[in-house]
Design a protein around this nucleic acid. Structure first.
Length: 258
DNA sequence: ATGGCAATGTTTCATTGA
């Protein structure tokens, strides 16, 4: 079973990329962030023509998440949002696929460490942690994946000195991600040897991709039970080379289920 | 220290992202 995450930065603009990518990477789960679409505009028919069904929740302009699965492997028990956490912003969708509980997250960006949005980000993280602690008990086979908007370690940042204390790399954000891992989750990417300077996002500006001036902020977290079943995890940086790309690249984990 | 790039919405620029 292959499980992927991709912040597409507008599913309207990126729909051709997504359809093309799914043809070349026929994963069983694609968790999508930043669809930026209200539900009435979600391209269900086009995805179905490409062989994929979707569970989704969106809003105008910002946020919006979806879980895509092959039509033959439909998502069940779909839930949205973090239970008990009042939030207008559509950032979480969960579903069961092939016996695996999948939680797709679009963690708030935070804007800057001085911002109100940073306060919201940390509160959001706390609510996510509390909820996932319960979910992990209910669903041993649990994967939480998406755009986490946090680079966990120095090696996940092209210039850790320059990014020190900045949003996406501040200590409270790293601690918030660690607190979730402490429930019993494992960064699939770091289960394997990886090329140095592996990133999943590059700024559109300043030739970010060409200079490989990026961050690794898109993560696939596997529960204790799924960790030993994971055989690979890669970032598809080729996708970022294409015409009119998302600023994020897909991340793909392979699991060997019984 | 600053700006640069992309997407969206109602535009002819403001906001947000990361």
């Amino acid at each position: 079973m292959r499980i992927a995450t991709w912040n597409v930065n507008s599913l309207k603009i990126r729909l051709p990329h997504v359809l093309d990518w799914l043809q070349r990477h026929p994963v069983e789960v694609l968790a999508v962030q930043e669809t930026k679409l209200t539900d009435d505009k979600f391209p269900s028919a086009a995805l179905a023509e490409g062989g994929y069904g979707a569970a989704f929740i969106g809003q105008k302009t910002y946020n919006g998440v979806a879980i895509l699965t092959p039509l033959a492997m439909p998502a069940s028990d779909v839930t949205i949002d973090i239970p008990g956490f009042a939030d207008e912003q559509k950032r979480v969708i969960a579903a069961t696929v092939n016996g695996v509980r999948v939680v797709c997250v679009y963690v708030p960006n935070g804007q800057s460490v001085e911002s109100e949005k940073y306060v919201y980000k940390l509160a959001w993280f706390q609510a996510l942690r509390d909820w996932l602690a319960e979910e992990a008990k209910a669903h041993p086979r649990l994967v939480v994946l998406g755009d986490w908007n946090v680079a966990p370690e120095d090696r996940d940042v092209h210039d850790p000195k320059a990014w020190e204390g900045q949003v996406l790399f501040s200590e409270p954000e790293k601690a918030a991600l660690k607190a979730i891992e402490a429930i019993g989750f494992h960064d699939a990417f770091r289960l394997f040897e990886q090329p140095p300077k592996s990133f999943s996002w590059w700024d559109y500006r300043m030739l970010g991709f060409r200079r490989n001036a990026g961050l690794r902020i898109d993560h696939i977290l596997l529960s204790d039970a799924l960790k030993p079943l994971c055989t690979a995890c890669v970032i598809d940086r080729d996708e970022r080379k294409k015409e009119q790309p998302s600023d994020h690249a897909p991340v793909i984990a392979t699991l060997t289920l019984d």
